[in-house]
C-alpha cells in the first residue's frame, strides 16, 4: 500500500471548499426541511406522513420498486453474465446500450415507454388481446422503474464477474462438479452479495424516480400515484406541511438505503484482500 503523505499541499483548501459546497447544497437545504417538519411536531408529522393517500403511495412505490429491482436482478445478472463470459456479434454495442437508461433523460424514457405500451403502441397492441393493460396502470409503473434502474444492476455485477477467477470454477470441475452444481456452489455464493448490492442500488434509484413514471402512469390517487408525485401534488396545492412530511420520510429512507448499500458493498468485498 502506498503511504498517504501529509506533504502534499492543498488539503485544507480543498476540504474546506468541499465542505462549504456540500454544506450549502446539501446540509442546509436538508436541514431546513427537517427543521420545518420538526416545527410541525410529531403529531402533525405523523398525521401527514401516514395519511391514507401517502400510505397508498408508499405501497405502490415500494412494491413497484421491489418488483423492478427483482426483474433486474434476474435479467441484469443474465445480461452481465452474457456480456462478460460469452462472445457474440455486436457485443460492444450491446454493452454500450446498457447505459441508455442512464443517459436518456427520464422524461424521454417515460414518453416513449408510455407510447410503446399504450394499447395501440408497438408492444401494447400484443398485450391488449390478453387483457393486459401495461400503460396507465401499476404494471406501467413497474416497467418504467425497471427501465431506469437496469444499468445499476448490470454495472454493479459486471466488474465483479470480470475479476472472478475462472480457476475456482475449473477447480470445482476438476473435483468432479457439474456445471450447474459449480454455478450454485461456487459462482452464486461469490456473486450473491454483489447481486444484493445491485438490487439495493436499483431499488433506491426506482424509489426516487419521478420523471419516467408520471408519463406512463395514470397518476390516480390511491391507485397509480407514486410517492414523489404525492409530494408534488401537495406542493402544488400549497399543502407544504403534508409535502414536507412525506419528503422527510423519503429522505430518511434514502439515507437508510445509502447506509445499507455501504454495508452491502463492504460485505461483498469481504473476501477480497
Amino acid at each position: 500500500m502506498f503511504r498517504k503523505s501529509n506533504a502534499l499541499p492543498g488539503f485544507k483548501r480543498t476540504l474546506g471548499f468541499t465542505l462549504f459546497y456540500l454544506g450549502l447544497l446539501v446540509i442546509l437545504p436538508a436541514g431546513g426541511m427537517i427543521f420545518r417538519v420538526v416545527q410541525l411536531g410529531w403529531g402533525g408529522f405523523w398525521h401527514n406522513a401516514t395519511s391514507a393517500r401517502a400510505l397508498a403511495s408508499y405501497e405502490l412505490s415500494f412494491g413497484a420498486s421491489f418488483f423492478a429491482a427483482a426483474v433486474n436482478a434476474v435479467f441484469g445478472t443474465i445480461l452481465a453474465w452474457v456480456l462478460v463470459r460469452y462472445h457474440f456479434p455486436f457485443k460492444r454495442l450491446v454493452d454500450a446500450l446498457v447505459d441508455v437508461p442512464f443517459a436518456l433523460p427520464t422524461a424521454v424514457a417515460g414518453l416513449t415507454l408510455a407510447n410503446m405500451f399504450s394499447p395501440n403502441g408497438w408492444l401494447g397492441q400484443f398485450l391488449e388481446p390478453w387483457g393486459i393493460k401495461a400503460a396507465y396502470s401499476r404494471l406501467g409503473v413497474v416497467i418504467a422503474l425497471t427501465f431506469v434502474s437496469l444499468p445499476f444492476m448490470v454495472r454493479t455485477i459486471q466488474p465483479v464477474l470480470e475479476q472472478m477467477e475462472r480457476e475456482t470454477e475449473e477447480a470445482a470441475a476438476t473435483l468432479g462438479a457439474g456445471r450447474l452444481r459449480t454455478f450454485f456452489t461456487v459462482v452464486l455464493p461469490t456473486l450473491m452479495p454483489t447481486v444484493m448490492t445491485g438490487f439495493a442500488l436499483s431499488f433506491a434509484r426506482a424509489l426516487g424516480e419521478y420523471g419516467s413514471v408520471i408519463f406512463i402512469s395514470s397518476n390516480m390517487e390511491y391507485k397509480t400515484e407514486i410517492t414523489p408525485l404525492v409530494i408534488i401534488t401537495y406542493l402544488e396545492q400549497y399543502e407544504y406541511a403534508a409535502a414536507m412530511s412525506i419528503a422527510v420520510v423519503m429522505l430518511f429512507i434514502s439515507l437508510a438505503m445509502l447506509a445499507a448499500i455501504n454495508l452491502l458493498e463492504r460485505w461483498a468485498g469481504r473476501f477480497q484482500s
Partner: peptide
Amino acid sequence: LITLIDLPFAVSPVVAGLMFVVW
C-alpha cells in the same frame, strides 16, 4: 463525506427540489 456526496444519487429529485422550496 463520500456518502454525503452520494446523496443525490439516492434522494428523489422531487425531494431535492422541495428542499430548495422550503428555503
